[in-house]
Amino acid sequence: MTEYKLVVVGAGGVGKSALTIQLIQNHFVDEYDPTIEDSYRKQVVIDGETCLLDILDTAGQEEYSAMRDQYMRTGEGFLCVFAINNTKSFEDIHHYREQIKRVKDSEDVPMVLVGNKCDLPSRTVDTKQAQDLARSYGIPFIETSAKTRQGVDDAFYTLVREIRKHKEKMSKDGKKKKKKSKTKCVIM
């Protein structure tokens, strides 16, 4: 069974824990209790493949930012979460993405942009803004509501699919490099 290491990042209060708990335990946590770091595991079937999701729910508070490099190193894919009623959390996505790329030393890291709290009427981040940002990053965008469960499975499952595509691409690139290195030079 394939294991996928997913990391949920975003500013404090955007609903990272609520999304994760909704996926794992099928219930909505409405009281806000700032996370330092929590880890969850769940076995699911995605596109006919049974897999184990190892999900790291991270601290959004700035005082825990020193811990970010460590979990970013171990993560295979990242859910970059903002709240649709919090423009600052949307603007912060850029910083999370840049930090992930720096730590992973790669421009090509599996990510999904997630606009959470889409059940709320007080939207300050337009869907088109988020779609445009995701398009500019070359990553999928999904709106979710941890409260109603809308888009929750889709967000995590899409990230797994992005990781699969990335692994497939990397193995193809690896095979191309191996083929090239088999060419021999004969000096007579």
Rank of each mutant, 00 (worst) to 15 (best):
T2R: 11
E3Q: 10
Y4F: 07
Y4A: 14
Y4V: 14
K5P: 13
K5Q: 05
L6K: 12
L6C: 08
V7F: 00
V7Y: 02
V7I: 06
V9H: 13
A11T: 12
G12S: 03
G13F: 01
G13R: 03
G13S: 09
G15E: 01
G15N: 01
K16Q: 15
S17G: 01
A18M: 03
Q22G: 14
Q22M: 04
Q22L: 02
L23C: 13
I24N: 04
Q25C: 13
Q25F: 03
H27E: 06
V29L: 07
E31P: 05
T35K: 15
T35C: 15
E37H: 02
E37Q: 02
D38G: 00
S39W: 13
R41C: 00
K42P: 01
Q43N: 06
Q43L: 08
V44M: 12
V44G: 07
V45P: 09
I46F: 05
D47T: 03
D47Y: 02
D47C: 03
T50C: 07
T50R: 09
T50Q: 14
C51K: 04
C51R: 03
L53S: 08
L53H: 07
D54G: 01
I55T: 15
I55V: 13
D57A: 00
D57Y: 00
T58F: 00
T58W: 06
A59W: 06
A59S: 04
A59G: 01
G60S: 15
Q61T: 05
E62A: 09
E62Y: 03
Y64T: 08
Y64K: 10
Y64Q: 11
S65N: 09
R68V: 02
R68F: 03
R68Y: 04
R68D: 01
D69F: 01
D69C: 02
D69A: 07
Q70C: 07
Q70S: 13
Q70G: 08
Q70H: 15
Y71G: 15
Y71A: 15
R73C: 09
G75T: 12
G75F: 04
G77V: 11
F78M: 14
F78Q: 13
F78G: 00
C80H: 04
V81N: 04
F82Y: 11
F82Q: 09
I84H: 14
N85I: 13
N86Q: 04
T87A: 10
T87W: 05
T87I: 12
K88Y: 05
K88T: 15
F90M: 15
F90V: 11
E91D: 08
E91P: 01
E91H: 02
D92S: 13
I93R: 01
H95W: 04
Q99W: 10
I100L: 10
I100T: 03
R102H: 13
V103Q: 04
K104H: 14
D105M: 15
E107A: 11
D108P: 04
D108C: 09
V109H: 01
P110Y: 02
V112H: 00
C118Q: 06
P121Y: 10
P121N: 13
P121F: 12
S122R: 07
S122G: 12
R123G: 13
R123D: 13
V125S: 11
D126L: 07
T127F: 10
K128D: 06
Q129N: 04
A130Y: 11
A130G: 05
A130N: 07
A130V: 08
Q131D: 06
Q131W: 09
D132V: 05
R135P: 03
Y137I: 11
Y137K: 05
G138S: 05
I139F: 03
P140L: 02
F141K: 01
T144S: 11
S145V: 12
A146Y: 14
A146S: 11
Q150F: 03
G151Q: 13
D154E: 11
A155P: 09
F156H: 13
F156R: 10
T158H: 12
L159R: 00
L159H: 04
L159W: 01
L159M: 13
V160L: 09
V160I: 13
R161V: 04
E162N: 13
R164N: 10
R164D: 12
H166Q: 12
H166W: 07
K167Y: 09
K167N: 06
K169I: 08
K169Q: 13
K175N: 06
K176N: 12
K177F: 09
K179R: 08
S181G: 05
K182M: 05
T183F: 05
C185K: 14
V186N: 13
I187F: 07
